[in-house]
Amino acid sequence: MSVFEERFATYRQQHLGLIGKLIYREESEILDLFPDSESAAEVVKDLEELASSSGLQRKLTKIALNQLRIQPNDKVSAIEVCGGSCWLLRSLLLKAENTGLRINAIGSDISQRHIETNKEEFGNMNIKWAIADATDLPYPDVHFDLALNCQALHHFPVDMVIKLLTELKRVAKKVLIFDLRRTFYGPTFVRLLSPFYSKSFINDGIISHRRAYSIQEMRFIIELADLPYSVTPFTPVGMLVESI
Rank of each mutant, 00 (worst) to 15 (best):
I162K: 08
L180Q: 06
I110P: 03
I110R: 12
I207C: 06
T117S: 03
S198R: 10
L192E: 06
I115T: 01
F178V: 13
H209A: 09
I63T: 07
S28P: 00
T166I: 05
S198Y: 13
D109I: 01
G83K: 04
Y197A: 10
P72S: 13
L16C: 06
L93R: 05
L56D: 01
L89F: 02
S28R: 12
R211L: 06
F234Y: 03
T61R: 14
W87H: 12
Y197M: 13
D204V: 08
I222H: 09
Q71I: 09
P233L: 00
C150P: 00
D32T: 07
D204P: 09
Q57G: 14
L176D: 14
K75L: 06
L224N: 05
T10F: 12
K128G: 10
I207V: 15
E26V: 02
I162N: 06
Q71P: 03
G238M: 02
E120L: 13
K75A: 08
A147K: 11
D145S: 08
K95M: 05
L148M: 08
M239N: 06
L22D: 08
D141L: 13
Y139I: 12
V175L: 10
V142L: 13
I63F: 02
D204N: 13
Q13P: 00
F156Y: 15
I222V: 14
N66L: 12
A105G: 02
Q112A: 08
W87F: 15
L22K: 12
S208C: 06
V190I: 15
L22M: 14
A225V: 12
F34V: 00
I115A: 02
S53H: 08
L153H: 09
